[in-house]
């Protein structure tokens, strides 16, 4: 799926995920959580397609069910008692709270699945390279070597099979022995080739003072606009919570803020924050359609 938001500067991506995750994790308000959950669900399906749907049904749903059940089973606070199980009260409040907690866990997991799809390794390196330049090179080198070592281990295993030394066959001790010998030769191999890599690095001036960290990303006008919009929406919601326009109390009794015009605007602001990437995509679709019509 082609996603517009992922083409923005990684800093904007990072701010967005920080904002939605902070609010999702700190506020147990049902409407806020509902908006968060629904947006995260839609966005994850939008990004990952069929894979996300399968994940949501077979992993996320059971997990949330368990989370929702566990809370009322162990938490007996609250004043509206529904029934007793082995002399333990089951309360309405703790059921509500359990559901809210489950939705929160679900939302956080979904947001992280979106985060993974958008924050690729080079974006991550770019973000942290800005803070610690040496670290970004180390991460980049590690990402280079891990697949390389995996391929080499596979090659060695195949080569050993080719001369009748099958690693996957034989008894446990034999397999451990051959596994260890492969590991030891891998270390030798890595060090041996590392000498070449070090040469290649020095040949290109590694070790000179004043190394910079290059990146392909630019921070353009769109990124500035998005950052401003994100920050405005985020601050609106934070103030609304601080000023108790949006509030929730579960125990001892379930009390939620009243619903009126201002609150509706605040909910809408949070929804806009969560759905920002999708709004960008929809806007892009409309632009493309109109461009095509003009042709």
């Amino acid at each position: 799926m082609r996603d517009t938001f992922s083409s923005c500067n990684p800093i904007v991506n990072f701010i967005y995920f920080t904002c939605v995750l902070v609010i999702t994790m700190c506020v147990k308000h049902p409407v806020i959580l509902g908006i968060s959950f629904a947006s995260a669900m839609i966005y994850s399906i939008y990004l990952n397609g069929m894979k996300a749907i399968k994940f949501n049904i077979f992993f996320l749903l059971p997990l949330m069910l368990i989370a929702a059940i566990i809370n009322p089973a162990f938490n007996h606070e609250g004043m509206t008692i529904l029934t007793y199980i082995r002399d333990n009260p089951i309360t309405y409040e703790s059921i509500y709270y359990g559901i809210a907690a489950a939705v929160m866990i679900g939302s956080v997991i979904l947001w992280f699945s979106c985060y993974n799809a958008i924050m690729t390794s080079d974006k991550f390196i770019y973000l942290f390279g800005k803070m610690i330049p040496a670290l970004s090179l180390v991460i980049s080198m590690a990402l280079r070597f891990i697949p390389r070592y995996k391929i080499q281990i596979k090659r060695i295993t195949n080569a050993q099979r080719g001369i009748g030394r099958d690693i996957s066959a034989g008894n446990l001790i034999g397999r451990i022995k051959s596994g260890v010998s492969i590991l030891s030769i891998m270390i030798t191999w890595a060090l041996e080739n590392g000498v070449d890599t070090a040469d290649a690095m020095r040949a290109r001036g590694y070790g000179l003072k004043g190394r910079t960290s290059y990146s392909n990303f630019r921070f353009d006008v769109r990124d500035w606009t998005l950052t401003v919009v994100l920050m405005v929406l985020f601050i609106m919601v934070v103030i609304a919570i601080r000023a108790h326009f949006i509030s929730i109390v579960y125990f001892p009794a379930f009390v939620m803020n009243d619903f009126d015009g201002i609150v509706f605007i605040l909910y809408a602001a949070y929804a806009a924050l969560c759905l920002l990437p999708l709004l960008l995509d929809i806007r892009e679709d409309i632009v493309w359609r109109s461009l095509r019509l003009k042709i």
Binding site: S140, M141, D196, A200, M201
Partner: peptide
């Protein structure tokens, strides 16, 4: 300077 083995000279992942 370019060395013999193409694999070993590459330092980064991209």
């Amino acid at each position: 300077y370019v060395l013999q083995n193409p694999e070993n000279q590459i330092v980064t992942d991209k």
